[in-house]
């Protein structure tokens, strides 16, 4: 099978402006992946499926991943002009100081596809797409028209992560009931308050059980 760099080059030749970048995987598994821009993702997927050499006709696994907003603390060397008194005379001196700069990295939702080839019996080729943020711009193109096997899995990702797949033929909740409002697999999802009876609580459960008991006591006092 082609290496990940060759696949990237092949995609870029076939789909100009495909915005394909390689995401390295440092673990011993070494399953590197291709980050595909949402704009041309359907065309890229179609190329991967129909290309005679790659022939990735089997979309095995579709997954959502939630990456939270985070802050990166970086040490940056900054050159500043400082006024200093040297030998009794005020002078403008250039000085290099190391400062810690906090940079907010916006979170995003990610959708990962594991592709195999039944015809050529090779794989996996991993492609991933990222949304712009986690709140209002969570749309990604659906790849169900290319691989029918993604139909239910994309619905599941929509249900549990809230990624909206544009062009999906039947995008409804699949595992939770229709009236449900949350996306429970997101990292900031809070469990509903049913911690009335926890005989052996620990860690998070202990905190929630105590909070529940405090709530009940407060309500009792109010009445």
């Amino acid at each position: 099978m082609k290496t990940i760099e060759e696949i990237q080059a092949a995609i870029e030749a076939a789909v100009p402006g495909g915005e394909v970048t390689i995401v390295m995987n440092p673990s011993p598994a070494a399953q590197h992946s291709l980050l595909v821009g949402a704009g041309k993702a359907v065309a890229v997927a179609k190329f991967l499926r129909d290309d005679a050499e790659l022939a990735l006709d089997f979309c095995s696994n579709v997954t959502g991943v939630d990456w939270l907003d985070r802050e990166i603390a970086e040490k940056v060397k900054v050159t500043k002009t400082v006024t200093k008194t040297v030998d009794g005379v005020e002078q403008q001196v250039e000085e290099t100081v190391e400062e810690t700069v906090k940079r907010a990295v916006p979170g995003y939702l990610e959708c990962v596809y594991h592709l195999y080839s039944v015809a050529k019996k090779h794989g996996p080729v991993v492609i991933r797409m990222r949304t712009a943020n986690r709140s209002d711009m969570v749309e990604l193109p659906s790849l169900t028209p290319i691989w029918r096997g993604a139909e239910f899995q994309e619905r599941e990702v929509f249900d549990l992560y809230g990624i909206v797949f544009t062009g999906h033929p039947d995008l409804r909740r699949i595992l939770m009931w229709d009236e449900f409002k949350d996306h429970p697999m997101r990292k900031d999802y809070v469990l509903p308050d049913d911690f009335e009876y926890e005989p052996t609580p620990h860690d998070d459960v202990l905190k929630r059980a105590e909070a529940h008991r405090a709530d009940v006591a407060q309500e009792g006092a109010a009445q």
Binding site: Q31, H114, P124
Partner: peptide
Amino acid sequence: PKAGEAYGR
């Protein structure tokens, strides 16, 4: 395990 990902089937 060190940071990374794996798909086993």
